[in-house]
Design a protein around this nucleic acid. Structure first.
Lengths: 209, 209
DNA sequence: ATTTAATTGTGAAAAAAATAACAACTTTAA
DNA sequence: TTAAAGTTGTTATTTTTTTCACAATTAAAT
């Protein structure tokens, strides 16, 4: 299996999404410049990225949407079903759950963890909510390798350590805490203020040019 | 004003956050390697980034936390208060509102837009919820340049166009739609499935090495 | 049959980003 | 006083990422 940088993987996921849109509009074939336009990228970039997934287009009709999708998915998807843990069922947790529900054929949120007794044992979007004390048991039982942290920052670090301790390899952290772990753990810190501050910086900068 | 890439801006925001943590722990001075450790970055990277903000550290005691923070903030912050519009007050909208409330001295959500009549005119986190039909009036009145879209995808594109039409320069898009606009508009697409799929890819890859 | 037009895959080049390397500096120790 | 230790700012180098450029290919037009 060839390696791929995070950037390339991100773009491949984007291509997959765009291709699904085209597929749903019954578009059969597509050229790199079509994708480029929708992705705001250079066509050569797209062709180069696609070299990774092992599908050759035609010089005449470009890429067959179905076939290319198949190859990208084969490249991106794990072999087996991937269970995801969601930590926290506040507004953010609920919206993540809603958003992800039924979106992906292989990857799905499989367990929710909370400390609020009113939420424990409820089933939301087909997913059971467990007490946070049962984290280790459930994560191990379901071979969960991915976790989404959607709680306030004060306990984030402790929970992240517990997750890694029991086998989690990737953490998506929506809390205010900055997580940082050894390189073999994939951490994506998604502090929502970052996006806003960046947006502010770039909306400002423009005026000054 | 020097230009800065999105990556550099992102890191500067990160340094700011880390420095605030140090400040709250009454740490007075800090070295580039301390920051590097917490940010999982190379110390030279940090020193290079800091060249932009115009603050010189001391070769003996490193950087004064307060002074460096001041310079980073001066570099990052807009000159005037930046009003932000939030589109959608579902679970995600509420969590964004909560999360951002009081977090930043200059940037704040200033108006919420909804179509649900039960939500209109309510005030949440000090912010009034308006009918989506009033978008143009309110955005113009408050000189809003930044918008956060937290609604389902079907109407995202239309709303984004309306936002830009009335002066918005930066959009943070949490919906499933892929927005793409001319380069002078800053768009950050934050489809939450992307993070999960990337996490899945990299948690899988590790096993295969 | 040829030519034209359009596209792909990919090597080469360019651009951007990250890292290394080091002179200059300052304190402390010898 | 001199040497040692440790850090910064910045130049140089390396690595990564993006873009260019073009041979090869194929269908349609002439």
């Amino acid at each position: 299996m060839k390696t791929a940088s995070e950037k390339v993987v991100h773009r491949l996921i984007l291509y997959k999404k765009l291709l699904k849109n085209f597929q749903s509009k019954s578009v059969r074939n597509i050229f790199s410049h079509n994708l480029a336009e929708h992705a705001s990228l250079n066509p050569a970039q797209i062709r180069r990225d696609l070299m990774l997934v092992g599908y050759d287009g035609s010089t005449v009709s470009g890429y067959n949407v179905n076939d290319l999708l198949f190859c990208i998915e084969k490249f991106l998807y794990p072999n087996e079903i991937q269970n995801v843990a969601l930590i926290g069922l506040g507004n953010l947790g609920k919206s993540i759950l809603d958003y992800c529900y039924g979106r992906h054929p292989i990857i799905a949120i499989n367990a929710i963890f909370e400390k609020d007794p009113n939420k424990i044992n409820r089933i939301i979007c087909g997913t059971r909510c467990y007490h946070i004390d049962d984290l280790e048991i459930i994560v191990k039982k379901n071979s969960i390798k991915i976790a989404i942290i959607a709680i306030s920052s004060s306990v984030t670090e402790t929970i992240a350590k517990r997750l890694i301790e029991c086998g989690v390899k990737s953490i998506i952290n929506y809390s205010n805490a900055c997580l940082s772990f050894p390189a073999e753990i994939y951490v994506e810190n998604r502090d929502m203020m970052f996006a806003v501050e960046k947006a502010a910086f770039f909306s400002k900068k423009e005026k000054e040019i």
